[in-house]
């Protein structure tokens, strides 16, 4: 348990909710003076996972590692590195795990194609269902219904 190794106090937080969420009020000095660059750094940071937290980006977390990584991002932004270069630099050190949106590859194809797959599957099923029903009008009775009909008419 990585997080608890660093924050023993959190072991106490065995409640329903709590734990890793911390306040990311930090040193204002770490913000870049150039607002455009700062904005870019924030956007990159939002794509990087705070590794010792759960599902938080480094921009949202106050963990020391997140703070260090924020600094690295800002240094590289001011050094003129591209977004792609910074993400690659991070991935090289921490692996795919640090990307909150995984890169498209064979192993993540299902994940990224799911919106299209689900939509197409839904449309195809619905289209076939409506077509079937509009062609075969009225729908023929099933054996079950026919049996019930026979029973009903037999009784009368």
């Amino acid at each position: 348990m990585k997080a608890s190794r660093r924050f023993p106090a959190l072991l106490l937080a065995a409640g329903l909710i709590g734990g890793g969420v911390a306040l990311a009020v930090d040193d204002p000095a770490e913000m870049l003076p150039n607002p455009a660059q700062e904005k870019r750094a924030e956007a990159i940071g939002a794509h990087l996972r705070c590794l010792v937290c759960q599902n938080e980006s480094i921009e949202d977390s106050s963990a020391p590692l997140a703070r260090d990584l924020r600094k690295v991002v800002r240094e590289q932004v001011s050094a003129g590195k591209s977004d792609q270069q910074i993400m690659d630099w991070m991935t090289e050190r921490y692996g795919e795990f640090i990307r909150l949106a995984p890169q498209f590859s064979w192993s993540t194809a299902l994940l990224w194609l799911m919106p299209a797959l689900a939509l197409v599957a839904g449309l195809v099923i619905a289209w076939r269902a409506t077509r079937r029903r509009t062609v075969v009008t009225p729908a023929p009775l099933t054996d079950d219904e026919r049996a019930r009909l026979d029973a009903l008419s037999g009784r009368e």
Binding site: A46, H47, R49, N55, S57, G95, E96, F97, I98, R99, L100, A101, P102, S107, T108, L111, W112, M114, P115
Partner: peptide, 14 residues
Amino acid sequence: RTISVGKPFFDAAT
């Protein structure tokens, strides 16, 4: 393999 799926993915996909 350990990967993360977080806010950037969900925003982009939903």
